[in-house]
Write a protein that binds this DNA or RNA. Structure first.
Length: 685
DNA sequence: AGCACGCCGACT
DNA sequence: GTCGGCGTGCTC
């Protein structure tokens, strides 16, 4: 029965597992999911056991496991979920499993891995500790509680513990993990979409959702897009449920505190788990309600290693574990809508759902733009100012204008690497490439015809900002470009009345206090060559529409400035989600775009372009021979290029073939670093 | 990813 | 003479 060898996954960018032997001196039971410490290339790594391995391959010396850690082993649902995360993100299995493994300090080992139970005979010593436990919301049970947890809660020192054990008040036993039994019955997953208008207004809805869960003494997991949302949630929701154990989990916790809460979750000592995307990987079993807020927020997307996002992970998770999942947001995205249309996601019906809004969109069209703001918009801003209302002007581009060109010959600056027009920033008098970030100083005269007059084309935030200041002298106008966390909270302080900005201004905190939104040049959005653009624009418009004026006394207005010839497209964007997405999905289907096809960009980075192309071409050849269609590489087409030292392939496949493509592709590349070329994946689904 | 091994330039 | 730069390759 006792196998000698196990294969272990490690969190390294190599698509392979490594074989280790089980030491003969009995380390404790080892089975799939067990967390082990291994020697690897002269360093120590944490790994996760995948299973027993045959030992016939002796082409290298197999090293023994260094130790079996006293961590709870990953459960089958976690291993399964890790696989799906890996398939979706093209990370290695080890990297995906690493999300579930807490960072662990060897100094915890002497305390960990043991269980404490009270003995009957010495009641005196029990009282203070039982008070501590009661305060922490832990009931004493027959099985005992983890010693690491116990020590942290009761502030025990080693000396005190030995004394208590010797006095016979406590009993300490080894924590034993058993190989989990195969699950037979599978619980059904139910997934819902619910529309909210703003976070603070969704509180009655959250209350209605949580109440029955808490009454049934079931557990809830709430995933929010960032730490500020976690704090807001805690402030507003936990007072509604006194006596209920809310457990916060996010990146601000120290590693010890994280492990402490990991153990609390593992022992089931909580009612409502509230956290950022990191909380998705905690060992929370038997969760009845999974709640996810604002799926489009950036905080849900991981920017490194397994580049997962909360929505997909939670979706996969409930399909494995079962339970209810509720997605709450302002506007459903295309992915959610497609699932609604297929009946996989249902629309939430509740008592506390808010009635649809009655805001109206006003169109202003023009043939040729003479000024940034049309007369209608100018008048609206003036009226709004008169009523002490705040105005937001939403512009598509950063910088002063989209391009700097010659009025005589029409020459304009482009990026030599990326083939796109450089953006002109007038205050700094520099040109930047919006794609690769390259900067240069413009010439005094046109480089082609030496004409003296350069003209700025299109409108960026900076240009709109200046013309607004000219039109409304004496009014404080601010501009905002990137996601500036500092200014986000206090944008409206110091009597600022007009804000000009890119999509960075479309935040709940900013929009709710304004009463007029002017969308600058609607047609400029339609020029961007990105298949997801229409979806993003639709979402941005509706999110803005929803937040606008929610905390303003004055009735709000929403004005879209649009060139007359593009007006026909405008109306579509103000249709309700079901109608708009229906048409958009048809388009996507005929063009073989997500969600009907998964698009995988395989990006090769390396200094040597010869080697880089060879690596990509050989991958392409081998994929094609397995009937997986590949496009590219794109050496010259500036549009797809990411930088000077990279090329890429585009792979398209059906969502049904996710696992197959993962297996084949990772089998081909083996490691994400080959011959000095590093490979990266970007998945759009 | 780390880390070793290895091959070239600037120093006690 | 050596120390250390990082380019290349491998990890059970």
């Amino acid at each position: 029965m006792s196998a000698l060898y196990v294969s272990v996954s490690l969190s390294i960018p190599v698509y392979k597992e490594f074989t280790y032997s089980i030491p003969s001196d009995g380390t404790g039971p080892v089975f799939p999911g067990t967390i082990v410490e291994v020697d690897f290339h002269s360093t120590i790594h944490l790994g996760c056991v995948s299973g027993y391995a045959p030992a016939e391959d002796k082409s290298y010396d197999i090293r023994p496991l260094r130790s079996v850690l006293p961590l709870p082993p990953l459960r089958p649902w976690q291993l399964q979920l890790a696989d799906r995360v890996a398939w979706e993100t093209f990370a290695t299995i080890g990297e995906a499993r690493d999300l579930f493994i807490p960072s662990y300090r060897p100094s915890w080992v002497p305390w960990d891995g043991q269980k404490v139970t009270f003995l009957e005979n010495n009641p005196d010593n029990r009282c203070p500790m039982q008070n501590f436990l009661r305060e922490a919301g832990i009931e004493h049970s027959e099985e005992g509680i983890n010693l690491f947890l116990f020590r942290e809660i009761c502030h025990l020192r080693k000396k005190d513990l030995t004394r208590l054990v010797q006095a016979g008040s406590l009993q300490v036993n080894r924590e034993r993990w058993e190989k989990p039994a195969e699950r037979t019955e599978k619980q059904e997953a139910q997934i819902f979409w619910g529309e909210i208008r703003s976070f603070s207004q969704s509180i009655p809805m959250i209350r209605e959702l949580l109440e029955p869960v808490i009454r049934k003494r079931e557990k809830a997991l709430i995933v929010l897009p960032g730490i500020s949302a976690v704090d807001r949630f805690s402030d507003l929701v936990s007072p509604l449920f006194p006596g209920i154990r809310f457990l916060r989990y996010d990146g601000r916790l120290s590693s010890k505190e994280r492990y402490f809460r990991y153990r609390l979750v593992e022992g089931g000592h909580y009612d409502v788990l509230v956290g950022t995307r990191l909380a998705l990987f905690l060992p929370a079993e038997n969760v009845d309600l999974h709640l996810l807020f604002d799926p489009e927020e950036l905080g849900h997307f991981s920017d490194r290693n397994p580049r997962y996002d909360s929505l997909h992970v939670l979706f996969s998770r409930v399909q494995i574990t079962g339970g209810r999942m509720i997605i709450l947001g302002v506007t459903p995205n295309l992915w959610i809508n497609e699932k609604i249309q297929r009946g996989i996601i249902h629309e939430l019906s509740m008592k506390s759902v808010l009635p649809r809004q009655t805001k109206k969109m006003e169109q202003v069209t023009y043939e040729q733009k003479k000024s940034s703001l049309t007369l209608v918009a100018q008048k609206a801003i003036g009226d709004n100012l008169a009523r002490h209302g705040r105005t937001i002007i939403w512009t598509q581009k950063t910088g002063y204008s989209s391009a700097l060109g010659c009025a005589d010959c029409g020459y304009y600056y482009t990026c030599p690497q990326c083939d796109v027009a450089l953006r002109y920033h007038r205050s700094e008098r520099i040109l930047t490439c919006p794609r690769c970030g390259m900067t240069r100083v413009p010439d005094d005269t046109c480089p082609r015809c030496h004409g003296a007059w350069m003209r700025a084309w299109g409108e960026g935030v900076e240009r709109v900002f200046q013309s607004v200041r000219r039109i409304f002298p004496g009014v404080l106008v601010k501009s905002m470009e990137a996601d500036d966390v500092l200014s986000r909270e206090n944008v409206w302080t110091d009597h600022c009345m007009i804000l000009v900005g890119t999509s960075a201004v479309l935040k709940e905190e900013i929009l709710e206090k304004a009463s007029l939104l002017v969308v600058n040049s609607f047609e400029e959005w339609l020029m961007i060559p990105d298949f997801r653009l229409r979806e993003h624009l639709y979402q941005d418009l509706h999110t803005a529409w929803s937040y606008l004026g929610e905390k303003s006394e004055i009735p709000s207005r929403f004005i879209v400035q649009c060139r007359e010839s593009y007006q026909q497209y405008l109306g579509d964007f103000f249709k309700p989600p079901a109608a708009w997405y229906g048409a958009e999905l048809k388009k996507r289907q005929t063009l073989h775009y997500p969600p009907f096809t998964i698009l995988l960009q395989l990006i090769g980075k390396g200094r040597n372009s010869e080697v880089r192309k060879n690596v990509l071409m050989s991958i392409r050849e081998r994929l094609t021979s397995q009937d997986i269609p590949v496009e590219g590489p794109f050496p010259g087409t500036g549009l797809r290029k990411k930088g000077v030292f990279s090329d890429e392939l585009m792979v398209r496949f059906s969502p049904l073939h996710e696992e197959r493509v993962y297996t084949i592709l990772t089998g081909i590349i083996e490691s994400r670093i080959r011959d000095g070329v590093s490979l990266a994946f970007e998945v759009q689904q």
